[in-house]
Design a protein around this nucleic acid. Structure first.
Lengths: 347, 347
DNA sequence: CGCCGTCATGTTTACGTAAACATGCTGTCA
DNA sequence: TGACAGCATGTTTACGTAAACATGACGGCG
């Protein structure tokens, strides 16, 4: 917490130690300091040692602003997202941060509290002024489709949770396949059909899961019950559960995420319905808690870490190849984890 | 995604539009462009308009590296943490990011996957080279107490989840008071004593909750049962629950977080014990899901958003006052949320 | 013995911005 | 009418780094 010039009275405002300072102390030119700092060859050991000693004594740290100015890049990736509160987002971000760090990149977070057009636009504008080499967008890209938003040229983009694969480089969980596995699992247990509690209608991943649910039922020639609309929250799942508990022929429900499945479990429990004997429930996400619901939840496992990893890979590849990101979609597979909340229908 | 010099063949590598480019197009000096860019007075409207037009045409964006170099600051706050996967951390980070953004600061994330001394040290070293004006540390600061780690001078620090209030500026949830409320609630219901499932032993917040639990029991002259050690995970709560279910005189349990409480609920349910009639359970955190556990969980509400907010306030205050951060601890209050998992003991 | 290549190190310059200072024009008032 | 205040705008410089180029010493070889 010490500040200023090592106790020298009236010391200069010189907050930061520069190469010039080190050079002076070591009795060499600043260029030599630069060479030592960057591990370049062609500095004899004696000189190198002197410089290193001076660096240590002064506590020299390279100034990354100057470096960035010089090199024209920041070694930083920006991440734009709506919310960290969803398990999925925070785990994806964590994976992004970890892998980026391993490659020498830092992560700058640009949260958007309310997803209005204006806020999104603002975030992109800010991002344009930000020290960022590339951007990973974790949200519905269609919010940006007014054409007014544009990222500064030379900034690369990767998008998660979107269908913009025709324009951007997209990485996402294979939503459709995950939902398909869930529904087929329930049909395979002998249920005549499967009900569905959706995510928010504006959510791309929610849409995909709902579409896949419907498609599987149609392919199997089963009746398609009306969807119940949720918003990812356990509360909305609970509300849907209250409705389904009163629906006599409902024996199987696919919830678009685990939190809503939790709400379903509670609603069924309160109505004296036994899961899985009276009703089977399958979720989506496989949050760490899902295995400890009562009963343990059968759910679709998403590999958020892998999604984050691939985002970083793609974005770094774009930066390094100076390529402008081939559009295309990269899907990370899911797998169904069968636990105690699903079973053949009674009787 | 367009790159290079607007289609000019053999165009320069000039990736980025600078003030000089705008100045040339507008027929003014680059200083005038600077004045317009920063909204300084003393530019007549006609000139200003010309400059703005040129900016728009070229898609000018100020270069933040140059700005940072000039001003000696980055308008960025670094956040060092272990993991984003805990609800608490991710919500705190989100609040930090939101409030920082509102003040014109960006957030740079430095995750530490495994909390070894080396990794922590590495993170701090990297942070020193990073473009950051201040640092918020969300973890056990005592890991840093070897004396080897030091932040570059002039970087301000605020710490969450620590008892280092004597050396750093600390913001934290009032862990002790929250735990006290939980235990007193259970005693108030008529339970003879309260059992406790702890967090990891290395965790400061876990320690504080356990201390407060013990203190309340001792003050009330109640027997202090042995603590069961957990690690925040639902699984460890489940394991503790299996033990407690076999403990006949256990009628009330305080779990150090909601996830472990979830594990308890499942273990009790599997053993045919009814919550709250046979055993009362109280958690800590008030995650959004807690209200939908079976039964809905009585728990201590933590205001993570407020913690994040105060972190940003403190850190900005330090930056702006050029003060070196008064040590001291700022505690954010908690409140007990009573739901269905706690009741007077049977008979 | 002198020329030249090699190698360690120093000097110059540019990156983009903006403060500080300089210039030159307009209008006003003695 | 001339001096000067006020104001719009231009010029210089510095921030810290590192590539590109320059220097100078030493040694080897014809």
């Amino acid at each position: 917490m010490e500040r200023g010039g090592s106790g020298v009275p009236g010391g200069r405002r010189k907050q930061r130690v520069s190469m010039a300072d080190v050079a002076k102390l070591a009795g060499v030119s600043s260029q030599t300091v630069s060479r030592v700092s960057n591990g370049h060859p062609g500095v004899i050991p004696a000189t190198r040692e002197q410089v290193l000693a001076a660096m240590r004594e002064l506590g020299y740290r390279p100034n990354s602003a100057a470096r960035a100015l010089r090199y024209g890049q920041f070694n930083t990736i920006g991440v734009i997202l709506f919310s960290l509160s969803s398990t999925g987002n925070s785990r994806t971000v964590e994976a992004i941060a970890t892998h980026a760090a391993a490659e020498g990149y830092a992560i700058t977070l640009i949260p958007i509290d309310v997803p209005t057009q204006d806020n999104v636009l603002g975030a992109f504008t800010r991002m344009g002024e930000l020290a960022v080499d590339a951007v990973i967008v974790i949200m519905e890209i269609h919010l940006l489709d007014t054409g007014t938003v544009q990222l500064p040229p030379g900034v690369h983009v990767v998008v998660v949770d979107s269908d913009a694969g025709d324009r951007y480089s997209v990485v996402d969980t294979d939503q459709a396949d995950g939902a398909r596995q869930a529904v087929q699992h329930l049909l395979g247990l002998g249920h005549r059909t499967v009900w569905h509690v959706t995510g928010p209608q504006a959510s791309f991943s929610g849409q995909r899961r709902a579409q896949a649910w419907r498609a599987v039922l149609e392919e199997a020639g089963r009746p398609v019950p009306p969807a119940l609309y949720g918003d990812w929250s356990a509360e909305s799942g609970y509300a849907a559960g209250l409705v389904l508990a009163e629906t006599p022929d409902c024996t199987a429900v696919f919830a678009a995420n685990d939190q809503m499945a939790l709400g379903l479990l509670r609603a069924f429990h309160e109505h004296g319905l036994s899961v899985p004997h009276d009703v089977s429930v399958v979720g989506f996400d496989d949050t760490p808690d899902a295995a400890f619901f009562v009963p343990p939840l059968t759910t679709v496992h998403q590999d958020f870490a892998e999604v984050g990893h691939r985002c970083v890979q793609k974005v770094l590849q774009q930066i390094r190849s100076h390529g402008s990101g081939q559009p295309g979609t990269d899907l990370v597979p899911t797998r169904l984890v069968v636990r105690g909340s699903s079973a053949p229908p009674r009787g």
